[in-house]
Amino acid sequence: MTRNFQTVPVVDIAGLGAADPADRQAVADALGRAARETGFLYVTGHGFGPALIADLLAAAQHYFAQPMDAKMASYIGRSTNHSGYVPEGEEVFPGGKIDRKEAYDIGLDWPAGDDRAPMMGPNLWPEDPRFKAAAAAYYAAIASLARRLFGGFALALGLPQDAFEPYLTCPPSQLRVIHYPFDPDAEPDQQGIGAHTDYEFFTLLHGAAPGLEVMNGQGQWIDCPPIPGAFVVNIGDMLEAWTNGEFVATSHRVRKVGEERYSFPFFATCDYWTVVEPHPAFVTPERPARYPRLVSGDHLLAQTIATFGYLKHRREGVSQAPVFGQEAKTI
């Protein structure tokens, strides 16, 4: 498969809720084609309330307009479960440049004292009830949409629509509220976010301005501008591994930011301790397993440690044992 696409496909997913199995399968087949050939797609017909997006955008604009000391009161390094304010320069992909952005990271709001997995616990919220209310409402709605897409992807792979349900009891999916500030003096090679693939199963993104680019099989960067009323969906590392490369995680980036931009990616994943390895349905003598067995949350945690400065600092002086398994809880 050459994957030399020049545009990102659009899939109307309204039929995933249809009573007729043939209608559901038709949508799933379109999802599968996009996941195999591009790794990126737009989804429409999702029924997501536009007021939820408007409320979060207004709350984000108010929050990020505050002085730095007010934002740093909720600095992510103060959290126990990787939630809170992320200043510019805190997050750098290995080998990359500092991204020109700031963000607020929000996870599954989990009760304190329930330490069943790293990166789970109560969110660190700012002293801003409007922001908390808007972000929590958006998180609940986008998590519900992600669950529907898990069902669609299952059908696309020839599996029962509820195949992922046993792994979605308390997934540590993350919502990022990202602000790319206006910068008329940005360097020509300045990036909003450097080239990368996403760590989780898939991402649901609302972007309020252009900037997102996707790499095709020829190494060309293809523009992925916002489409009104649509979410961008892209396949992540875990779904690529689970399907033995049947679905592909495609590299993407945010190009030089001149105008102010907001985006809300939701990184949809399965329960932390979900074991991910090529599913037997996608392993044959002609196509042996291409990916090692790993734990979904451990992969996410290891990649997060490699990216965030505060986590690297916490690990200074700690033995460089593998970050997988129980040892990961030491962060």
Rank of each mutant, 00 (worst) to 15 (best):
C170P: 13
A208I: 13
D109K: 03
Y310C: 11
I76Y: 04
H46N: 04
E327W: 15
A58Q: 14
G158P: 04
T7W: 07
M215A: 10
N216E: 04
S296P: 08
N244L: 02
T203S: 08
D20G: 01
D55G: 10
I53H: 11
P210C: 07
R3T: 08
C270R: 11
V232L: 09
Y291L: 07
E240Q: 12
S74M: 01
A135E: 08
D298A: 00
D128Y: 00
A143P: 07
L41M: 14
R314G: 11
R287W: 09
D115P: 06
D189Y: 06
G89M: 09
A22D: 10
D114W: 13
A141N: 02
H82C: 12
F282H: 03
G194F: 10
G113N: 00
P172N: 03
L56W: 04
A70G: 11
I227G: 08
A18Q: 07
C270V: 15
N123H: 07
K71P: 08
L168V: 05
V177K: 02
W125I: 04
S319A: 15
F282R: 02
F308W: 12
E91R: 10
I106N: 01
G113V: 08
D185K: 11
P280V: 02
D114C: 09
I106T: 03
A65L: 07
A143G: 07
V254K: 01
A34Q: 06
V86T: 14
G194M: 09
D105I: 12
G47C: 00
D115Y: 11
N81G: 09
V10Y: 08
D237M: 08
D237H: 06
R116E: 14
T2V: 14
V254E: 08
V283L: 06
P280H: 00
Y180L: 06
P166W: 03
I106L: 10
V295F: 05
N4G: 14
M72K: 10
Q6T: 15
G152I: 01
A134S: 07
A241K: 13
Y167C: 15
V86M: 11
F282S: 02
A65E: 09
P111N: 01
I331T: 14
I142N: 01
F231M: 05
V254G: 01
A18Y: 01
H252Q: 04
L145F: 01
P280E: 05
H196M: 01
G207Y: 10
I235N: 01
A195Q: 07
Q191H: 14
V86H: 11
K132M: 13
L205A: 01
V283Y: 04
T169C: 13
W221G: 03
T7Y: 07
L311T: 08
S74H: 00
F264N: 05
G45F: 09
Y138V: 04
E327Q: 15
L300P: 10
D128T: 07
Y167W: 15
Y167A: 14
Q190C: 09
C224R: 00
A249Q: 06
L16T: 02
L301R: 02
P122A: 06
I98P: 13
L301H: 00
M119F: 14
S83G: 11
E286V: 13
F93L: 15
V276G: 00
N216H: 02
